[in-house]
Write a protein that binds this DNA or RNA. Structure first.
Lengths: 112, 112
DNA sequence: TTAAAACTTACCCAAATGGCTAAGTATGTT
DNA sequence: AACATACTTAGCCATTTGGGTAAGTTTTAA
């Protein structure tokens, strides 16, 4: 097997990376309640807005949220499919899941 | 709410961070087959051993593996409980899981 | 038409990450 | 005792990350 870290990071890399930060996880929790604008999401944090917007971009790059412009607001919504993929990766190798491995592998390969 | 990023990263931060890399995920996949020594795990990768050992330390810091010294070998084994916690975090907010939220929150707080 | 709101762009910075090499230590084999 | 195996430590380096400020732009409200 050659080096696995050739080229650009995958959606899985970026997805788990996005989850590896308390601020970003808090955004995900909030978005479970529904869509929200960027500033609205930023409000709880002691952080300059441009810094917070970087977190949103990391979440978007990881496929965990999608955003669209609505007037002057940037609306954000949760991408539950990516959450499912990531938790799916973790659980794919658990006892009793072996029979689902092939399906998951195929799913991941399609998405990259 | 104050800044969530005060102080040291939590086990959840470190756990997801450990998963955000293809090399480390490959190690986890391999360890599902059972314990293995560090060099044995390193063999598939085009990487110097000290570089690979850093990945093992990242996995250990994230609670995903535990290691022990056995003679001159460092044996590694998977910590399935942490995998369960991380996939648990992701699924805690899925539809139909709301009733398990309190239990999970308590579980996370105990472990930190 | 002016001003406020909600970003957005451009840049700076310190620390962490992920790779390397070179040299050391500890343990097992012959 | 000598050598090989399996790490281990130490340090170097480029890039990424996660924060910041300052100064735009675009849209909405007054």
């Amino acid at each position: 097997m050659a080096n696995l870290n050739t080229g650009a990071p995958t959606q899985i890399d970026l997805g788990f990376h996005a989850l590896a930060d308390a601020t970003r996880r808090a955004v995900i929790e909030k978005l479970h309640e529904g869509e929200a604008a960027a500033t609205e999401l930023a409000e709880p944090f002691d952080m300059a807005l441009p810094s917070f917007m970087k977190h949103l971009r990391v979440l978007e790059a990881g496929g965990l949220i999608s955003t669209r412009k609505e007037g002057r607001k940037r609306m954000c919504r949760l991408e539950r499919a990516q959450l499912a993929r990531l938790s799916g990766w973790i659980n794919a190798y658990e006892a009793g899941w072996q029979n689902r491995l092939d399906r998951l592998d195929a799913f991941f390969k399609d998405g990259e």
